[in-house]
Amino acid sequence: MPPSDLPIDMSDPRIRDYIALIRLQVLTPLSFLVNIVAVIVCGLVIKPTIGDLSKIHPNPLTPQSSMIGTFVVILYVTQIGYCLLLVLARKVETKNTLVKGVGISFVIANWLMAMWAVAWSFQLWLVSTILLGLMIISLSYANIVLLIYHTPTTRRPLDIILIHLPARLITLGWSWPYGDPTRYGDYQLEGLAVVLPVNILALVAVILRHDVVWCFGAAWINAAIWSARPKAAPVFITTVVFTVVLPLALVAATVFSHLRNRKRGVIALPPDEEVHPRV
């Protein structure tokens, strides 16, 4: 049936947003379910597992398994909350963030993550790299839109936890063969080319937007990377530095903003006029 024959006015933006929300309510949980099943099967059932392959083929960005595992669990928990928020959201601002901010990006990223897990398990390195790159594009687009047009606010804490938090993970890497510890310096410049721009972007977001989610998410990923040893010096130094700098920048930016707002709020009174005695 063509849209013109439907008994509703599809030209009404409210109707289009409502249909888009319903579409997300169906597609997002489905894509998340496919994602988590694929990761569980490839991470626990198929041998070698995703973790085993990371140890066999380490790279300059290989993270510490337990830390990245904790991070992934947090992401999955927040995605469950995100799916619930799609159904339970009542505020117009939250619905706009879901439909126009994140949109279909999470759905695409979940499917790409599931396909990446399969490709990685079958050691299809080129395919897995392409899928990971596409996932980065999808998540980067969502992050840019969220930061520019749907800035997180403490007035809607659930939006921060369930929308902005899951949209902050970006990972990319190269590998060298069979875990040879003498090869840990391979691709160190490529690794630096990944971690440095991402951390600079995170630093800009922290300073300009006071983005707590991005700050602690990026710091956690940095810590997960440098804690997995051995690590090439450029990657190790960069991740350690930004692990410290990001929280400090958040505190400094918050304090500076608070002091500036207080200064603007002070009303400058004119100086008292001197009273000259009349002659």
Rank of each mutant, 00 (worst) to 15 (best):
I108S: 02
V107G: 01
L30N: 03
P58Y: 03
P3I: 06
I50L: 15
K91H: 13
L172C: 10
S257Q: 13
S105A: 15
T70K: 13
A205H: 00
S54E: 02
V213C: 09
I46F: 07
S128M: 14
I8E: 06
I237D: 07
K100G: 04
R278N: 14
R229G: 08
A223P: 00
R155W: 03
V235E: 02
V107F: 04
V145L: 05
V275H: 13
V45N: 08
T151V: 13
Y187C: 00
Y18E: 14
I170Y: 09
N222L: 11
I40T: 14
V107C: 05
K95V: 09
Y82A: 01
N261F: 08
L86K: 02
H164N: 09
S4N: 10
N110H: 05
V255T: 13
I80H: 04
I36F: 10
P277I: 08
N59V: 10
A119V: 09
R278Y: 12
Y141V: 10
L246W: 00
Q25A: 12
L44F: 14
T254Y: 08
E190L: 14
D186E: 14
D159L: 03
Q64M: 12
V127E: 11
L21F: 01
T151G: 11
G217L: 08
V266H: 04
V235G: 01
L248P: 04
I104P: 00
K55C: 07
V45L: 15
T97Q: 07
R264D: 05
A114G: 09
V145A: 08
R90T: 10
S257G: 15
P63T: 03
I221G: 00
V45W: 14
G51E: 06
L158H: 05
V241H: 00
L146K: 01
V145I: 13
L172Q: 10
W226K: 04
R209I: 07
V127T: 15
L196N: 03
Y187P: 00
I170W: 06
V37R: 13
I50C: 08
